[in-house]
Design a protein around this nucleic acid. Structure first.
Lengths: 140, 140
DNA sequence: TCTTTGTCAAGAATTATTTTAAATTAGTGG
DNA sequence: CCACTAATTTAAAATAATTCTTGACAAAGA
């Protein structure tokens, strides 16, 4: 957390209690929360926080390179507190977004067909191991 | 077009003029239109068509495996008339979505980390070759 | 013909997100 | 520590994409 504050300050990001609260909630969070998840959680500690602030704080953190945005679901954007490139898996049954850490050459920035790449997202869809174990297909 | 009709009929999809119009507009269209693009275009030929009908027609075609949905942009979903797996590139400058036909092992269905995969999307982001040639970075 | 089933259009409703405008606060320099 | 200015927060309203609802209507079968 201290490191986050340092990094943000170095990037001339204005620090506010709200932004720090968002950063703190996200830190180490592997659940890939949506903006609304963040809002509902922070409201307990900061009853006056508004949705707009959560949205702008998330955008500030994203631009600062602290988090990344995922469009794995069309319903809503979710956020990953780990900004380094890796893949994601969406379970159609339990609706969770899981990190997938496999090496993939295509995920490296570079060029394709003459287009300059500055970012890549790889989204897998299916049924996660936990749901498979619980005996359901995710199709019901 | 004839083949589309055959395939849909074989899948017990009820054929209607509206659905056929959507299918026809998409056929061979490589521009990755949004639902609203389809609606605005079809309205010329079918002045009475409604947005809801376009949305449901697109969903019917998707479920029939004729088209695929892309969530490459968070603003809105767009559609690809080619349902076979391939990658996509989003140009931050001209906002176009381009097909990327490169082989990639990760795009093959299978398993990762014990999760069963039934679909994959690979999205590249950057500046397309055309915009690069026109001399702008896409950052302005 | 009567019934059943399913689609269509239009608009209302819903949901995620952004904008607005006024009040408050963070960062800076004295 | 105080004051100043630019930036942020807030609540509410506005927007934009998408979904739902309702009544009208059409095809297929008994």
């Amino acid at each position: 957390m201290e490191r986050v504050i340092e990094r943000l300050r170095k990037k001339d990001v204005v620090l506010t209690p709200q932004r720090l609260a968002v950063a703190e909630f996200l830190e180490g969070n592997t659940a890939h929360p949506t903006a609304d998840d963040v809002y509902r959680k922070l409201r307990r500690k900061y009853p006056t926080i508004s949705r707009a602030t959560v949205y702008t704080s998330l955008e500030v953190l994203r631009q600062a390179g602290e988090i990344q945005e995922l469009t794995i679901r069309k319903e809503e954007v979710c956020f990953d507190s780990d900004p380094t490139p890796h893949h994601h898996f969406f379970c159609r049954r339990c609706k969770r977004v899981l990190d997938v850490h496999i090496g993939c050459p295509v995920a490296r920035k570079g060029w394709v067909d003459g287009h300059k790449i500055d970012g890549v997202q790889v989204y897998f869809y299916g049924v996660c191991s936990r749901c498979l174990k619980s005996g359901r297909s995710g199709m019901e």
